[in-house]
Design a binder for these strands. Structure first.
Lengths: 332, 332
DNA sequence: CTGAAAGCGCTAACAT
DNA sequence: ATGTTAGCGCTTTCAG
């Protein structure tokens, strides 16, 4: 049997209400009483039961975090941002992997709501009407991190993917006439945005989009290697490749190198994300800097405001990105 | 106001107890009643309140996970193993980063216990007497993952670090006469074990331990680069380097390469962990395979048994490791 | 400034 | 097979 607030009350010769007050820092307690209570707490080794508190107060000070895969270097970085800010605001985090599987996602949303989380941070692929339905039903706020809701209905934090992809492609096009694009799995809106940016740059440089130059990967290192091999098989090889994630870009680079094709001399490669990987390879990777930690942090911060019912001017936050040129592309 | 078990009971014309029974899958319910209740639940959109359930049953079906840094590729992999098995056994996870800071660790243990977790998975550096004190006080089981408790008192899952380090060094010594060791931050017991393994191999090969050959890093890529530079400054350079983590090994390799020293021709490098990084670099990294996912998974499985009060034959589990030779070392 | 008492939503005996 | 009834440990009016 654990010691309860009632035991403390008796030990200190006060009521439960008073103990509750000192535990919660309510100022309406005479210093002498406060001291008495603190001593009793100390003596008994009392530790408030957050579950009981949650039931009574209807606040659990925990938020749910749904993430595709915590072992991905990209999402892990996001998660760290989320957790740091959560800690800062005294929340704990219930973390679950969804593998971007819609059924799992819906299921997780529900178990987390069942656990009475005060809010939800969601990361995933596409937000469907079904997701929105669940979110509306939630009775607690939801924030999307690095995840797009086309309807704009769910608060979110992202960068401008299209713009970023445009800039990267444009830069490549400034010294490579023929540039390919290795995308993530089709059909998610972030992918579509990036592809749009690529196409826009191509168009501006007077190029049509050659389907041979469009390879669909799955963000993994291995799919990057495969993409490189496919590109190498083309009768007319690209001289530049824009890749939708750093890890996949790494695969592309090695795919080339393993076939004796030099990067950047023979072909330039441009990544996306700027994960720690980018400087941990040779050549170091030119890439789009996506502030993952910040996206996580800002989304959590946004959520705290929402949970607090504070006014939020902009619920669909776009964080700045930038381009960083390293050694996988040719300098001007 | 959310719909409660009481509302469902009234809607279905049964008692709360019956509703509770069907929600919890208790077989003692007539199928017809069960159906009636399910319909009422559906109609009302009832979702059981896990907090209330937790208070009444004294089980929250959530476990706490304390991890040094979720954004580290090594720990993220462990975390995935933990979460997968937790999900399998219907537990959720409260995840917090400790940065291996003892104060934070102790604090986290306490807030998690306050939240009435059913158990705790702990990852960290050293387990001190203070940690043990907290664990004993916990009233719920604790399992260590990739973390040593010298006293053997806390259930844990690890590999044999000394043995692994011995094998790696021994292999290096079979074609390099002079091998250096780049360790993690001093003074944690895992580090000590690895160092012991290194020393043992050196001794067996008739070599004393040359302090110049012992570099202390912090597991990071950058500290690996620095270590390489230090090693290069030696009047008598090593021909092989054993490094305590893959990420740091990567740094060592690049430190060498950036100075025009070839790996493995001029110097061999051996890593530890076999994170995904190991095959994502050139040359690919020879390393000790530490089954991180499994360590996480097994520790969580162990914890479920402990929470279930099942008999556990061995509470200090040692998982097998192995050596994998890739291209950062010379073949026989 | 402090206490009494009524829940919060559910589980778990104990009856029936 | 189903209902009744205490709590679980805490917060929160409402009095005083």
């Amino acid at each position: 049997m654990n010691v309860t607030i009632y035991d403390v009350a008796r030990e200190a010769n006060v009521s439960m209400a008073t103990v509750s007050r000192v535990v919660n820092g309510n100022p309406n307690v005479k210093p002498a009483t406060r001291k008495k209570v603190h001593e009793a707490i100390e003596r008994l080794g009392y530790r408030p039961n957050a579950v009981a508190r949650g039931l009574a107060s209807k606040k659990t000070t925990t938020v749910g975090v749904i993430i595709p895969d915590i072992s991905s270097i990209f999402f892990a970085e996001l998660a760290r941002g989320i957790e740091d800010i959560a800690t800062m605001y005294n929340y704990n985090i219930i973390l679950s992997n969804s593998d971007q599987n819609k059924e799992k996602e819906i299921h997780l949303i529900n178990t987390m709501l069942g656990k009475q989380v005060d809010g939800l941070v969601f990361m995933g692929g596409d937000i469907t009407e079904e997701h929105r339905q669940e979110f509306r039903n939630a009775s607690v706020p939801v924030a999307l991190a690095a995840t797009l809701d086309e309807s704009g209905e769910t608060p979110s934090v992202n960068i401008d993917y299209e713009d970023a992809a445009y800039e990267a492609t444009d830069l490549l096009l400034s010294h490579s006439k023929r540039v390919a694009y290795v995308s993530g799995p089709d059909n998610t809106s972030i992918n579509t945005k990036k592809l749009d940016g690529y196409k826009k740059a191509m168009k501006e440089h007077g190029q049509g989009v050659d389907d041979q130059l469009l390879i669909v990967g799955d963000y993994s290192y291995d799919s990057g290697k495969e993409a490189a091999e496919q590109l190498l098989d083309l009768e007319e090889r690209p001289s530049g490749v824009f890749v939708a994630s750093d890890e996949m870009a790494l695969g592309v680079i090695h795919g080339f190198q393993d076939s004796g094709v030099r990067v950047p001399e023979d072909v330039e490669v441009f990544g996306f994300d700027n994960t720690r990987l980018a400087t941990m390879i040779r050549p170091t990777l030119s890439t789009v800097v996506q502030p993952m930690y910040d996206i996580g942090a800002v989304s959590m911060r946004l959520l705290t405001k929402l949970m607090n019912k504070e006014e939020v001017e902009e619920t669909n936050v776009i964080l700045p990105h930038r381009i960083i040129e390293r050694n996988s592309t040719n300098a001007e």
